[in-house]
Design a protein around this nucleic acid. Structure first.
Length: 274
DNA sequence: CCCCAGGCGACTC
DNA sequence: GAGTCGCATGGG
């Protein structure tokens, strides 16, 4: 096992990374976190500084986005409005992970109109039932494995009414070149193509673009973001997703995705306190 | 009993 | 194009 030592802790906080909402499979440990992705395990221990344990340095550098300067991004985002400054202060150690596209697509279809503990529970059950046994954990099912799962199987996992959507979308992913093609498209076209899949609307598409395709010129607008928009910029209580998303992308451009993660993480942390 | 959760799809007009 | 409504499921 090799290790990467993180020296600038302003730019890397494993709690922020795990709990900011970008992924669902992680576990808190004695002095850090373990993240599970596809059939991989990424372990981070914090002593004085964070240490990433990996058997593939290049892969870990890419996964944790270590070549992006987050201090610069935060500096660029500051001064826009008060809530964002507080959010950056609160979650300054967030990094946006380069996650597996298929896993992100399936996970965020399950996330729609759902709560995080239940999303995690369903995804964990999916891995246990249909993923490879990797010893002390289970892999996320491969596309080949996913293609064998029926609608009633998904229902038994607790996916609810999203079960049919999952089967339909998995069918497209496994029977066409959708995944390889969508990667090549500019953000706007990729978004449109994603929304054609069952269970994917504007919000889920933006999460997929941000977490699975590395596009930071998107701004997923969920219920928390809409609340924040209403409080800070007016409009209706339940404003239209595309309207809110476009507002913030116009404001933050290529840094929209980062801004969204700081804001989402911060707003959720205030749950019940405002 | 109600409302809510990282919304979406179908159906109106 | 915008406005409603139902949707599985579990927790508060």
């Amino acid at each position: 096992m090799k290790k990467i030592e993180i020296k600038n802790t302003n730019e890397f906080n494993i709690k922020d990374i795990c709990e900011c909402g970008q992924l669902f499979r992680y576990k808190k440990t004695q002095n850090g976190y373990i993240i599970y992705e596809t059939d991989q395990k990424h372990e981070v221990c914090v002593h004085k500084t964070p240490l990433i344990y990996t058997n593939n340095i290049k892969r870990a550098e890419n996964y944790f986005d270590l070549n992006t300067n987050y201090d610069t991004i935060k500096l660029n985002l500051k001064g826009s409005f008060d809530c964002l400054d507080k959010a950056i202060e609160f979650g300054g150690g967030i990094r946006i992970l380069k996650q597996d596209l298929t896993e992100v697509i399936i996970s965020f279809i399950i996330s729609a109109n759902n709560n995080i503990p239940r999303i995690q529970k369903t995804i964990e059950a999916l891995c246990q039932k249909f993923g490879k046994n990797c010893g002390d954990y289970f892999a996320f099912p491969t596309l080949e494995q996913l293609a064998k799962i029926s609608q009633s199987d998904f229902e038994k996992l607790g996916a609810g009414y999203r079960s049919g959507q999952l089967v339909k979308t998995i069918d497209v992913l496994s029977q066409t070149n959708f995944l390889s093609e969508v990667k090549l498209l500019p953000t706007k076209e990729a978004r449109k193509k994603l929304i054609e899949l069952s269970g994917i609307g504007p919000k889920v598409a933006d999460c997929i673009l941000l977490f699975g395709l590395g596009r930071t010129d998107v701004f997923p607008a969920d219920v928390w973001i809409k609340k924040l928009y209403h409080q800070n910029f007016g409009g209706k209580q339940d404003e239209q997703t595309d309207k809110v998303s476009k507002f913030f992308v116009d404001l933050f451009k290529e840094n929209s995705g980062y801004a969204q993660q700081y804001l989402y993480y911060y707003k959720r942390s205030l749950k019940g306190e405002e």
